[in-house]
Design a protein around this nucleic acid. Structure first.
Length: 491
RNA sequence: GAGUGUGUAGCUCAGUCGGUAGAGCAUCUGACUUUUAAUCAGAGGGCCCUGGGUUCGAAUCCCAGCACGCUCACCA
């Protein structure tokens, strides 16, 4: 509920806020400088015996999450944990007791005092001076169950983060994963670059776009569905290794694995092919996993996943053969391919039928089995307009997608560099769009083809769905658990 | 887009056969210098998601809508 409604508890807190002001206390001061954090004190005084107090004066700050015994004990939480605040009625001056009585759960305060471990063994700061840093007007959700209402978790993520520690931990890990990814690339000599989000022509992936409008240019623009075509231009221009981590936008369905805007990682590496990109992907995943889990043996939704062993490398046709018995490489006509697919109950749509049949059967019969990391290699040409033809079979391309937990985690190519071939394949996309495929590109990006005509060296490319990687590495079952502010309907 | 579930106090949830609103936490008042979800006594707090309908009477049954979840479809 974005509109603030007047409630009994809020009215009472506003009254307390006014009471602070009438005593000359600003409940929203400009600055406060704590000297210590909860974790810092825990470490520094870990050997302090029970019922002992030291003379050092410290200043801590944080949010009140619990008040016990009429204010005698306060649980104060800062970024890395809890510190108890002990306020003795006998030793506190009257004006400090007045402040104490106006505090509520949810308020942010600073506390100055001496460190003590109580009789019960809880490390505490013995209050000498209380400072209100921010008076909270809305009460926090219940302490025991936390916040469980999914809608409120997503609409008011800050509340979810305050109350549910696992929520903020997931977003901390997300940040650490992205830092790790960036470090892996920088260590290999990559340049981090930025390319346009507003695209005059849709391209780089088959997906439905969002369309917006620029007023001054009086021109429609697409929010990018992929940064691919611009990153390759940078390779043409002379960069040898580039990567970009950024948001892309696809106007498609939403579920536990899809959000309309999501974070993609794309990298292009000169004088590399798709085998090199497999190694690169594995490095990225292992480094990121170690950064947040400290191990490469992880568990997702109760399933054990081994990220340590070299990922399996399997051609799509061999997986189809393993799980269905159908050998697509031995099938040479479209009719036969469709018949083979239909014989196991897989419907084939589209007109590039041999390739469509192979992909459809793979998606229907194989994907779900790929729990352990698997590079699925050698897709049919029809599916992959930006990929170089396989060096040994001209029906296939040098492409792989890495599956973990049955999900597509990466998509990588030996990049297509032949400008004439590229133009023909993009023109085929336009033909498909005119035939009614809403995901195909509606016009050829002529400047991209021109760039290839200036010469693109042999290059490997890799794309990673960062949100899904974060899901796997944090055991998060919904993409909305790893995107702080997922797309929701306006309420 | 289809199916399905949920929506009740600030939060977490009960609410029987349709009979007019309940608990715990939180809040307020008081007690207790004690704590670890502190405890004890008392009090206040409700657009039962919205709009229709059936009925003497609807949180409850019916219809429509809204939001969110799940499954499916779609989906680099």
């Amino acid at each position: 509920m974005p509109e603030v409604q007047s409630t009994e508890q809020r009215d009472i807190r506003i009254k307390k806020l006014k009471e602070f002001e009438s005593r000359g206390i600003n409940p929203y001061p400009h600055i406060y400088k704590p000297t210590d954090t909860s974790a810092g004190l825990a470490e520094k005084y870990k050997d302090l015996p029970n019922d002992t107090q030291v003379e050092d004066i410290v200043k801590v700050a944080g949010r009140i999450k619990a008040i016990r015994n009429s204010g005698m004990f306060i649980d104060l939480y800062d970024k890395d944990g809890k510190i108890q605040i002990f306020s003795s009625l006998e030793h506190l001056p009257a004006e400090q007791l007045d402040i104490l009585s106006l505090l509520d759960i949810g308020d942010i305060i600073g506390v100055e005092g001496r460190v003590k471990r109580t009789k019960r063994g809880e490390l505490s700061v013995v209050t000498e001076k209380l400072t209100v840093l921010s008076k909270a007007l809305i009460p926090l959700p219940e302490k025991y169950h936390g916040l469980t209402d999914t809608e409120m978790k997503y609409r008011q993520r800050y509340v979810d983060m305050i109350v549910n520690d696992s929520t903020i931990q997931t977003f901390i890990k997300r940040s650490q994963i992205i830092t790790s990814i960036r470090k892996t690339f920088l260590d290999k000599g990559f340049l981090e670059v930025e390319t346009p989000i507003l695209h005059p022509i849709k391209g780089g992936a088959t997906a439905r776009p969002f369309i917006t409008h620029h007023n001054t240019l009086d021109m429609d623009l697409y929010l990018r569905v992929a940064p691919e075509l611009y990153l390759k231009r940078l390779i043409v221009g002379g960069m040898d290794a580039v990567f970009e981590i950024g948001r892309v936008f696809r106007n498609e369905g939403m579920d536990t694995r899809h959000n309309p805007e999501f974070t993609i990682l794309e990298a292009y590496w000169k004088y590399k092919d798709y085998y090199d990109m497999m190694d690169l992907f594995e490095d990225i995943v292992r480094n990121a996993c170690l950064a947040v889990n400290g191990t490469l043996q992880i568990e997702f939704d109760g399933k054990k996943i081994d990220l340590e062993k070299p990922f399996a490398r399997r051609s799509m046709d061999s997986l189809v053969k393993e799980y269905t018995g159908i050998d697509f490489l031995a099938i040479h006509s479209d009719e036969e391919a469709v018949k083979a697919a239909e014989s196991i109950g897989v419907k084939v749509e589209g007109d590039q039928v041999w390739g469509q049949a192979l992909v459809s059967v793979f998606e229907a019969k194989c994907e779900e089995h790929l729990i352990q990391p698997t590079h699925v290699m050698n897709h049919p040409v029809s599916d992959s307009p930006l990929t170089k033809i396989h060096r040994e079979d001209n029906r296939l391309v040098e492409r792989f997608e890495t599956y973990i937990n049955g999900w597509e985690m990466s998509n990588a190519y030996t990049e297509l560099t032949n400008p004439l071939d590229q133009r023909a394949r993009l023109e085929d996309q336009v033909r498909q769009a005119k035939a009614g495929n809403p995901e195909a590109d509606t016009m050829v990006d002529e400047d991209f083809v021109t760039a290839l005509e200036y010469g693109l060296a042999p290059t490997g490319g890799l794309g990673i769905g960062v949100d899904r990687l974060v899901m796997i590495l944090t055991n998060s079952l919904s993409i909305r658990d790893v995107i702080a502010f997922p797309t929701l309907r306006l309420k």
